[in-house]
Design a protein around this nucleic acid. Structure first.
Lengths: 337, 337
DNA sequence: GCGCATTATCGAAACGTTTCGAATCCGACA
DNA sequence: TGTCGGATTCGAAACGTTTCGATAATGCGC
């Protein structure tokens, strides 16, 4: 593998000149620069990562801690992982993937060995051991999601509370007074994932505030469970004309199918909103109004914040992303019946 | 951050002694070893990754090239990524994730800068530019999947041809003579993913060989497309009593739903097999006989083969994993009607 | 034509490891 | 008593880069 000495020899200059020419940290004569570029091209030279890591303090690698909990929806998870990688590359950073048990222990390992410059945490629970670890390690880090204790942490996430209020208000504005919410699988609430209760609680609170009657039910993954959830909701709230779905794609799809089977038409009989969905609702039947969960936006911002920490221009803080509402025709004003 | 000098000082020995004590490459007096271990613990010492990479030829990092093509089923993809990471960790290797456009260009980048010791390729198409790149780079590499030209490559994958034959034989053995196959989304065949045609062609060939009548249809993701596929199949093959599904989870679920709606009972009227599925068919209704696509097995083997290449004990070759058949009660002997 | 600031380049140190060869110590054997 | 050998330990070189300080070359005003 060609090294900087080879380049220097071919270009007929010293290695420091090569280094400066490539980094641009000192001015280099145009002709010299050209000869060096030529040599680099010719030898297909790339600075040795190890040597660079050793000398400069930067490794140009981020650790992405992405445990896959039971119940985590794989496509959503994948969307976040991909977005983080893509966003990091825009700053010339590579991403080291830590999963499962290594999501925590591996963090200490790669940090202590100076393998990574910073850390991104995915899928944090309300009380996540990784947050404590991150504080201890003292490396620049950004959390995607909002744990209970955010002291000293940089966090970024969709404003789920605001999203919940947005959904409720939309339904109430259209005249709906009996509103249902179908949530995630029960075990997701149990294992302490941070956003499902944030959404649920804000939803219930806002409905109460606006004087609407509201009912909530979680929904397991399997079709029997979804059926039970839908039927349970219809039993509790027979006059329900508004419904929000805060669950994953197959479940939303099943809910729509069940509604159709029960002769409930969307939006004529029931206005339905897909809340905080990381997927496109275009191909649902019918396409649902949606408050998108913008993985790319969260991740891009998370990387920006991490880079800002490198530059020392960022204090720990929580940053919430404003939700938006996309109309696709699955909500309508309540018909007085 | 504590370095090897600190450890040496605290333990009262030279740095080379520390190095040998930790690597175990030379014998060290028990008492000395103990003092060193104590110092390491005390200082929470970890060898600097950059320095280690620079000196030893090993970086202890693998590149995982995992592009996410349109139509790729995210959960399956995720299962492979996780399995690779887990398998790599068993050899004390970390995984650098390269996705999207970087799946190809990033490979060259990380290889030329000696950031990684080896490469694992996921989701290769029949004619994949990455295979050529891997040959050029000359780094140990393992491909999960079988491209058209495997010369000089180490490849590992489920034996999809054998899996197809297994499915056909099972149905034919049970007396079924009119057999359907529902495949992946059309664009998956178009973009040249390697395994769907492998499965399809072997399936059709084996059916022909055994004298069964067979019909194939791809199935798009959306419910309308699945409905069309199912109805099309029933129209072409009205006497169909056996069916294999080589498609992703939501589609399989939809197919079962549609069959149920059309009054077709599984397995009484129709024997159904889920082929090469990376998910559990337990919670389908009914649970389907399945020929599993064992992500962990493929990935574990891929990592083993990569490690063998490091050790110089492996020649490039193609390794196929024997498929297995799991009975869950969705197939039955044809009732003479 | 002189000194001075500016520009372009170079030499060498430092980063933290691994590893080779050599040195030291000790008891054992002749 | 002298030497040999094994067990331990040490010193120093090398890996490839970045970067500091210094040097050489150039252009400028006086």
């Amino acid at each position: 593998m060609a090294n900087i000495h080879d380049v220097a020899r071919v270009a007929g200059v010293s290695i420091s000149t090569v280094s400066y020419a490539l980094s641009g940290k000192r001015s280099i004569a145009a002709s010299t620069k050209q000869r060096i570029d030529q040599a680099v091209l010719e030898l297909d030279y790339r600075a040795n990562a190890g040597a660079r890591m050793l000398k400069g303090a930067r490794t140009q690698i981020l650790a992405l801690s992405a445990p896959l909990h039971a119940g985590t929806h794989a496509p959503a998870h994948m969307a976040f992982v991909l977005s983080v990688v893509t966003a990091a590359r825009a700053y010339d950073y590579d991403v080291l993937l830590l999963t499962q048990d290594e999501a925590t222990s591996g963090l200490r390992r790669v940090a202590r060995s100076s393998l990574v410059d910073g850390i991104v945490l995915l899928d944090v629970s309300t009380s996540d051991p990784r947050t404590e670890l991150v504080r201890e390690l003292g490396l620049p880090a950004t959390v995607i999601g909002i744990p209970d204790d955010t002291a000293g942490l940089t966090c970024v996430d969709l404003d789920f509370e605001q999203a919940a209020r947005l959904a409720v208000r939309r339904l109430v504005d259209l005249g709906h007074r009996e509103i249902g919410l179908i949530g995630q699988a029960p075990l997701i609430y149990e294992r302490g994932s941070n956003f499902p209760p944030r959404f649920r609680d804000a939803f219930l609170a806002e409905a109460a505030l606006l004087g609407a009657t509201v009912a909530f039910t979680p929904a397991p993954e399997e079709s029997a469970g979804v059926r039970a959830a839908v039927d349970g909701l219809l039993a509790v709230l027979p006059g329900m004309t508004g419904l929000a779905l805060h669950c994953n794609e197959p479940v939303q799809s099943m809910v729509l199918e069940l509604l159709s089977q029960r002769g409930i038409s969307v939006p004529d009989d029931l206005s339905v909103i897909s809340a905080c969905s990381s997927f496109s609702t275009d191909h649902l039947n019918p396409p649902l109004d949606v408050i998108p969960l913008p993985a790319d936006q969260s991740c891009t911002r998370a990387i920006e914040l991490t880079m800002a920490q490198f530059a020392g221009t960022a204090e720990p803080h929580v940053e919430l992303i404003e939700p938006t509402y996309v109309q696709l025709g699955s909500t309508a004003a309540r018909t007085s019946s």
